[in-house]
Simulated scan of single mutants.
Amino acid sequence: MLNAIIHGKAGRIELGNGTETLSWRQLYQQREDLLTAAFFSRFTYLSGLLQHRLLKQWLGGVGDFTAFEKIDYWPRYDLEKRDDRNFVEPDLLLNFEDCDLLIEVKPPKGGDQYQEQWQLEIEGYFAQEKRLKPLYFLAIGRIGSVLAELDDESLQEKYPQFQKANAIGWKAIASQLRKCLIEGDLDVQDRRIIEDMQKALSLYGIRVRDLRWEDLHKLTDEAPLNLDSLTAWSLYVN
């Protein structure tokens, strides 16, 4: 289905009384849940070592994610003591042999991440999951400065099994996937899966392209050449 959408072969969907239509590409771009499903359903087929390598990078260098067990899409945690909302629904719960990982996804043009939602999702996990493990939390996309607002220490005092929260943008993830392909140490299956994950991101306009000298020139028009500009160049995304 993903390739059919990319190549314009998926057709259109009738809206309302049938007088208007919407392409599958437009629908995909409007629904963050489709990005979540397309990207992470492919992630689950990666080798354990590559899953570990990517998640450890995305979480800032911590965690053991080599023994993947299963993925739960949009787990629902009821909130019994709140008047403003009845439940919270993280996008993903990834279960590993030695830990769990909650993931909250925001598309590039969607709403921003916010720490109250993160905290409720973490609290919901510890209140309702039957098999508790050391827990990590990862926010992807539209992160802004919200990570600095999260009180990790208070969460760790309340929930000793809570390990760490981290946030990462889609630009950095796309760049890391590209780096995996360039380094050339992937087997055939992992390479094909990474390429498919890149295609899923491309439908949202998240594409890493080969570095070009003219791009570096553009980045240094307003600032001198230094380590920061070289880093920005290495993450250049259309």
Rank of each mutant, 00 (worst) to 15 (best):
V105W: 02
D228K: 15
G144H: 09
A165P: 05
I194V: 15
D196W: 11
D210A: 04
L34D: 00
Q117T: 02
L2K: 13
P90Q: 05
T231G: 07
R85H: 06
Q30F: 08
Y45F: 15
S229C: 09
L22W: 10
Q163W: 05
M1Q: 12
P90F: 11
V208T: 11
E89Q: 15
I6F: 06
A38C: 07
R53P: 00
W24D: 07
L230C: 12
T44A: 07
L225K: 05
A139L: 01
M1A: 10
E153C: 05
A174S: 15
P75F: 09
G205T: 08
A10Y: 06
R76P: 00
W118T: 06
L135G: 08
L59M: 03
R142C: 10
D151T: 02
G111Q: 05
L150T: 05
Q29M: 07
G8L: 06
L225F: 13
S175G: 10
N226M: 08
Y114L: 04
R142F: 11
K158H: 09
H52C: 10
R25S: 11
F43C: 01
W118Y: 13
Y77A: 02
P134V: 03
E121G: 01
A167W: 08
R191T: 13
L216S: 11
F87P: 00
E20K: 15
Y77I: 03
Q189D: 12
M197P: 00
Y45N: 11
R192F: 09
L49G: 09
D78P: 12
D215W: 14
K70Q: 12
A174I: 07
K179T: 09
L225T: 04
Q198Y: 05
K133D: 01
Q128W: 04
G61I: 08
F96P: 03
R209Q: 13
C180I: 03
A127Q: 13
Y125I: 07
K171A: 14
Y77Q: 07
E32A: 07
P90A: 02
L219M: 11
D64H: 13
Q115P: 02
G8V: 03
P90Y: 03
L92F: 02
R85A: 02
M1V: 14
E32W: 07
D84T: 04
Y136D: 02
L34N: 07
L49R: 14
Q176L: 11
